[in-house]
Design a protein around this nucleic acid. Sequence first.
DNA 1: TATGAGCGA
Length: 294
Amino acid sequence: MAVESAMQPSKVRWGELEEDDGEDLDFLLPPKQVIGPDENGIKKVVEYKFNDEGNKVKIITTTRIRKLANARLSKRAVERRSWPKFGDAVHEDVGSRLTMVSTEEILLERPRAPGTKQEESKVAGDPLAQMGKGGAVLMVCRTCGKKGDHWTSRCPYKDLAQPSESINDRPPSSEATAPATGATKGAYVPPSMRGGGAERVGGTDMRRRNEENSVRVTNLSEDTREPDLLELFRPFGNVSRVYVAVDQKTGMSRGFGFVNFVNREDAERAINKLNGYGYDNLILRVEWAAPRSN
DNA sequence: TATGAGCGA
């Protein structure tokens, strides 16, 4: 009922509607004839139609099919015919064919499509090596081991003693943090259970997401992504979160991001060292982030 | 140019 009648119109396609105005009398017409092509390459098609006034009209279409030998090819095309086979065609019997379907694998590199995430970004290779686009990749920093970015003397980490003992480097069940129950050593202890169930570790409430020690990084090049930021900041200490602001519509980086450190001192040293540091041909601005407005 | 997501009691 209601449903059926509602669906009825959608079954008729608009393209078919036009044929319905005026009856289709084509069956009254003689069939289409194709004559030739003859030895001169002339092909004739004879067909009949009704014109707008409803009169029968005979339509003859004459086509000349150029024979290849007579075809007026460009000089260059003729010349190509005499080329020896090359590429994949060398090993194949392709007759006089000049073109082949290549089976060569070609990897297309798409600039970040919206929706794709960090896996595609520079972290796949050595990010800093790729930074020295076109430049010699002979530079190898003896301090941090990065290639292609900077010499040892310019290493942003060069006068870092060593990345200060970061929490992740410690076994999770050190005396201070082991649960009172005395778990097997090496067993994972969720932060909320560390320190005998007390929620405070190092003065921080570990049950809440760590929004502390948030560092804002601006003037990022547009192809800097989160893994790149992590690479850059990790040497200063344990990073709890990296975030690069991305335009939801375009997928383009908005040129700034945030890095959260577990330890405030590490964040501070990162700010001191990386603020003003040239990265991807831009000068980074690194400073304490204001708390999120939300 | 420039201070961030989204999950669901």
